[in-house]
Design a protein around this nucleic acid. Sequence first.
DNA 1: CTATTATCACCTAGGTGCGAAAGT
DNA 2: ACTTTCGCACCTAGGTGATAATAG
Lengths: 179, 179
Amino acid sequence: MFPTLQITVKGLLPTASYSFMVDFSCIDNKRYRYSFHQSKWVVAGPSDAELPSRLHVHGDSPALGDHWMKQVIAFDEIKLTNNQLDQNGHVIVNSMHRYQPNIHIIVTDSNNDYICKNTYVFPETTFMAVTAYQNHRVTELKIESNPFSKGFRECEIEEIQALAGFRFPFSPLLKNYFL
Amino acid sequence: MFPTLQITVKGLLPTASYSFMVDFSCIDNKRYRYSFHQSKWVVAGPSDAELPSRLHVHGDSPALGDHWMKQVIAFDEIKLTNNQLDQNGHVIVNSMHRYQPNIHIIVTDSNNDYICKNTYVFPETTFMAVTAYQNHRVTELKIESNPFSKGFRECEIEEIQALAGFRFPFSPLLKNYFL
DNA sequence: CTATTATCACCTAGGTGCGAAAGT
DNA sequence: ACTTTCGCACCTAGGTGATAATAG
C-alpha cells in the first residue's frame, strides 16, 4: 500500500499498553468504473459481496504509550489483495470499490487483556481499489514519489544519476557523466 | 555476525514481561595470532585495552513470555565492529581476541522497571574476532553455509542452479540445464 | 470489451568474500 | 610481515509499473 498510511499520536499514558490496528470499510455500497471521457469515476452498480474486513495489527503492538509517541507510526506492512481466499494475512478488498481506512487504538492492561478502544478516521485517506491504474496522472504521481519506481522516471537528471551511481554535484569521476 | 546466535526458551511466565540482551566478554586477557605452520591460534601477548562491552538488546524487547517461547529467538541484528569510536550502536570488540557471548534475560514489571535477571552462557558459542579469515577452511565453511555468499560457491550443481533459476530435480525447462 | 493475472526489467536495501591498497 | 580498510562483483529479498496473456 503506497503511499503509506502514517500518523503521530500525543496524549497517551507513557506507561500504559496500546495496540494499533487498521481495518478498511467499503465507503458506499457501489461498484465504480472509470469513465475516460469524463475523466472521473462513475457508479457502475451495487457493490460486490464482501467478507468482513481483515484487521491489520501494527507489528509493534502491544507497546507502551511512550513507544508510540516518540516517532511517526507507519503502517508500511499493510498489503492489500483482491483474492478472497488469501492465506498470507493480507487485507482483502474488492477492486473498483472505494475504501476508508479506520485506525483503532486499543488500550490493554499488563496482561494485554482488552480495556477499551478509540477509532480515528481521516477522510483524506480514502482511496479506490484497483488492479490497474485508470488514470495516467496517478501512475506518474506514484512513479515520481515511490523510491521503488525510480526505474520508470523520465526526468533526465535522475536517469543520469542512476547511470552514474552518484548524485550531482558531487562527482567522484567526471567521465562517468557520459556513460 | 554469522552464524547467528539463536536460542529457544521454556518455562517463562506467559504473561510476564521480559527483555533479552547479549553482551560479549573477552574470554582471557590475551591477544592471539594464527600460526599457519601449526594451523592453530597461538598467544601473541596480553590483550589490548578494552572498553566495557556494549549491550545488544533484542529488538522484540520488552515482550511477554508467551512471545519469546513461541519461536526461536534469533539475535540476527547483532553487528560487530573493531571501531572504538563506532556511532552505529554496534558491539565493539578487539580483533584477534577471543570472545564469549553472554545471554541475559531480564524480567520487568508492567512499567518495564527492572525486577531481576538471569545470565546464560554457552561455551560452544565462543569465537575469535578477526578482520580477515586466517584459515581457508573457515572461509569455505562460511561460503557454503551463508546464503549471501552463494556467489563464491564452487559446487557445480549450485552454480548451474543459480544460472537456471530453479532447483533440481524440478526443472520447468530442461534446456536450461545447459545454459 | 473490460478487468485481472503473470512475467519481466528495473529499482531499493543490504549481506557476502575478494583483492588491491593502505596502515602499522 | 602482518593487519586493516575500501571498493567491488555477486548474491538475497522484495517493492515498482510495463506489457502481454488470460479470464469473464
